[in-house]
Design a protein around this nucleic acid. Sequence first.
DNA 1: ATGGGTGTTGCATATGATGCAACGTACTTC
DNA 2: GAAGTACGTTGCATCATATGCAACACCCAT
Lengths: 252, 252
Amino acid sequence: MSQTVDRALSILPLLAQGPADLGQVAERLGVHKSTALRLLRTLHEHGLVYRQQDQRYRLGARLFALAQEAVENLDVREIAHPHLVELNDRCGHTVHLAVYEEQEVLYIDKVESRYPVRMYSRIGKPVAITVAAVAKLLLADLTEPERRAIAEKLDYPMYTSRSTPNAAAFLKELAVVREQGWATDLGGHEESINCIGAPIRGADGRVVAAMSVSAPNVVVTAEELLTLLPLVRRTAETISREYSGTNRPKKV
Amino acid sequence: MSQTVDRALSILPLLAQGPADLGQVAERLGVHKSTALRLLRTLHEHGLVYRQQDQRYRLGARLFALAQEAVENLDVREIAHPHLVELNDRCGHTVHLAVYEEQEVLYIDKVESRYPVRMYSRIGKPVAITVAAVAKLLLADLTEPERRAIAEKLDYPMYTSRSTPNAAAFLKELAVVREQGWATDLGGHEESINCIGAPIRGADGRVVAAMSVSAPNVVVTAEELLTLLPLVRRTAETISREYSGTNRPKKV
DNA sequence: ATGGGTGTTGCATATGATGCAACGTACTTC
DNA sequence: GAAGTACGTTGCATCATATGCAACACCCAT
């Protein structure tokens, strides 16, 4: 809606791919060098870009600080955290918390496994949306047309032979998840890793977040992991209750 | 330099403090509601702000993703990481990596302690600049006028009785650190936590990053921690060599 | 010295951001 | 249940402000 701001903000994802000099930025924005310079200067003043010694620009420090503060301001996260820790204490595996936002699912909290074998994931990192248990839970709660629209738009990368292959399979899976109130990812993202997850609901019953427990085959089999399901669901329900109680959304 | 972009970007730190509605944003920016609306819409399109159910705006998901990509693009971090892990394997304590940027020191990597007692810190979080060992290392490398200028501008919060009390003490401490080539923080940030740190240098000898090992008193005393100093310094030197070798800055 | 590459500045132009006022809609209050 | 209030939203006329241009400054390489 605002051309100038729009151009300025377009610089950020561009620099996320790696440092670039003034000329490159101007070219990729399709504007004159002097224009790019002024935009970069403004971004610089706000600490969003940084000028390294070779004069090239890259993303700046304040970006981290902002992301940091942002994640700390999420109420669900604050309420859920102690429960996630407790769950991790009991079962020892990696515990994740994720939310859905603007067509993306992303981790907002994580408690590391006590076992030496850990999975790679990181807070803020977008989730493999077509296979992750938390993603299924979050998407399953959308309305039917929304689910359909998103399923159509997604890519279905075959991380493993058990990855969700296409939109039809995904929609079917979402229906199952919606019905049963929990979800799994059995080797769909990484061959040797299984997850089970449960939804966290607000006062109105809508899913506001999802949590999951992940463990590699070498530690526990999928069957053994599934025995934790009641525990995971209970934890999710506890968090849901607490969230609904203390933090009642103003609307709907 | 660009008023429109400047205003738009000012919204981000404002929202970092917590969600706000259109009126609040407009008021705090000192612009008309309609102007604020357009700016927010543009930020929204880029995923930097998110509109929650109660219509209020808060920081958005893409911010995490950007910060994520940004941190992954830092060469020092990439090179240092395996060495930090190895150091952690050997001593078991929390290991931090930090850089200095635009008057701020911030953690860009962290390997968690193996001991149950962990310290609170997070990647992207600005460091307690007047007391942290890594901050002393990074600031000590600046030129004398730079150090003086920054020391004057800082606040000196007394986290504990052993925190750096004022600019004079800080400058003196920086001189010591500069001289000896390593730094400590003995209970200056949290009464029961000690740190020792060493600098990582580029090919030109300038300090590009700093690393530290932190441990609470209940695990090891300050004296015991200090016995790790040679190991920490060796690790820092190994990283420095590797960084200088593979990644020669184009200029200076 | 000379030339190409890059970043930077001042300036005239008109694009595009701004505030205004009016409208829509939801939630409150009497 | 009607009137009132608060908030977000839209179209529009005005002029502030972002833009591209051209000239300049600088660094490195030849």
